[in-house]
């Protein structure tokens, strides 16, 4: 069971969270301007990478905040948790991935 660090509440067991899929999928500002193929790309297609993956999690049985997690899809190691928007703890100012690190989860302040 993963140990996930909520930027607000700290490290908690995976059972407190729900998964929200790949992060950084921006909703198109003008959907009507998109072709069917372009809309389908936004709607259905995801990266599914082997290795580091930026994804959304919701602390659904806790503070109910959505946040981002960078998790390795092979080792399941979590490099970091981050805010999905500016202004909160762990705000994702510099989106560069965390290097190395022993701990499963690192919270940035």
């Amino acid at each position: 069971m993963l140990l996930i660090t909520c930027p607000w509440c700290g490290p908690r067991a995976e059972t407190e969270f729900s998964y929200g899929g790949e992060a950084d999928i921006a909703r198109p500002l003008d959907p009507d301007a998109l072709s069917d193929a372009e809309w389908a790309d936004y709607l259905f297609y995801r990266g599914n990478p082997r290795g580091p993956h930026r994804e959304k999690w919701n602390h659904v049985h806790g503070c109910r905040r959505w946040f981002g997690v960078e998790r390795d899809t092979v080792s399941y190691r979590i490099a970091r948790s981050f805010m999905l928007s500016a202004g909160g703890p762990g705000a994702d100012a510099d989106a560069g991935p965390e290097s190395g690190g022993d701990a499963n989860t690192e919270q940035e302040d």
Binding site: A26, R27, N58, V60, R64, R65, W66, L84, S85
Partner: peptide
């Protein structure tokens, strides 16, 4: 409620 929060928190903060 989670659906509303998702959009409010992630897409339209």
């Amino acid at each position: 409620l989670n659906w509303l929060e998702l959009w409010l928190q992630t897409e339209w903060p």
